[in-house]
Design a protein around this nucleic acid. Structure first.
Lengths: 214, 214
DNA sequence: TAGATTGTTAATCGATTAACAATC
DNA sequence: TAGATTGTTAATCGATTAACAATC
């Protein structure tokens, strides 16, 4: 399987969503420059990205929407679907659970954890909430490989360590602190404060600096 | 004022947060390699980033924590503070309002908008909720320059256009669609689906690919 | 065929990393 | 002074962009 960079991968995820919309509209074929316009990139970049997943375009008809969705799926998705855990069922945690609920059958949140006894054992957005003491047991039992961290900053590092100990190898971190984990664990940070400060800064400076996928 | 890239700027935002914590602990000076370890980067990179804001380190004592916080602030913050608007007061919108509520005096959410009449005119997390019809009026009156978009995907583009018409020059977009705006408007996308798919992919591939600020 | 698009290679660009003299 | 750290320049790296022959 070929190597793709993080940026490539992000764009593939975006392309798939756009392609799904096109398919729903009954569109069967698409040229690289059309997809580029929708995604906010260049045609050459789209072609390069698609090459990475083994694209099969033709100069006459461009790419088959159906085939692209399929090959991106083979590339991106786990063969038999994947279940994620979420730790921290506060405002943000619940919003994220609602966001992902019933959206992607191949990548869904299958277990939630919180230290607050009043939240434990309830079912929130269709997902059972366990006490944090059960992280290791449930993660192992469910074979969970990725987790979302939405706990307060001061608990984030300990939470990450518990998850990694239980076998998690990918973390999506919403806590505004860098996590220290081993090199075999992939961490993606979503730092909303940083994002808003960036927006405010560049808005003052007069916009520009086209951002495609970041 | 010197130019900094988006990545530079993001790291500055992170450094400031780390420095604030150090200051609270009574630490007065710090070396580049110490800050680098906390932020997950290299000492050389930290020095380069700090140079951009006019750092004044000394080989003997490193950098003054107080001075760094001050010069990053001068660089990052609007001179007289800045108010942001948020459009879409659903689960995610409310969570984000809670997240930013009372946290940063220099960058706070001052107005919320929703099309649902049952939400309009209520005060949510200390912030008044207006009908979307009032966006142009309120944004102009409050001098709002940046906005957060948490509306459903199909409404995102129209929302962005309304905001830009009202004078907004920076958008933080949580809707999973690329926004088409003029080159004088800065857009930062936070795409949670893409983020989770990336984590799942690289977790399967066996982690690695150190991410510092993304 | 003619013409637009594809796959692929070469040139460009920008950011990170390495190196090192200047400094306290 | 000796030694670690700083500011700054040069080398490296990787990704994007431009170019173009091959294709339908």
């Amino acid at each position: 399987m070929p190597y793709v960079s993080e940026k490539n991968l992000g764009r593939l995820s975006l392309y798939r969503r756009l392609l799904n919309r096109l398919q729903a509209e009954g569109i069967r074929n698409i040229y690289s420059h059309e997809l580029a316009r929708m995604a906010g990139g260049t045609a050459a970049q789209v072609r390069r990205d698609l090459m990475a997943v083994g694209s099969l375009g033709s100069p006459k008809r461009g790419y088959s929407v159906r085939e692209l969705i399929e090959s991106i799926g083979i590339f991106l998705d786990a063969p038999h679907g994947e279940g994620a855990a979420i730790v921290g069922v506060g405002n943000l945690g619940r919003a994220i659970m609602a966001y992902f609920a019933g959206r992607r059958p191949r990548l869904s949140i299958v277990a939630a954890f919180d230290s607050d006894p009043s939240k434990v054992n309830r079912v929130i957005h269709g997902c059972r909430c366990y006490p944090v003491e059960d992280i290791e047991r449930v993660v192992r039992e469910e074979g969970v490989n990725v987790a979302i961290i939405t706990v307060p900053a001061r608990e984030a590092q300990a939470t990450a360590e518990t998850l990694v100990r239980a076998g998690v190898r990918g973390l999506l971190n919403f806590a505004p602190v860098p996590l220290r984990v081993g090199p075999d664990v992939y961490v993606e940070d979503i730092d909303m404060t940083m994002a808003l400060e960036k927006v405010a800064y560049f808005a003052r400076r007069g916009g520009a600096v086209e951002e495609i996928t970041k």
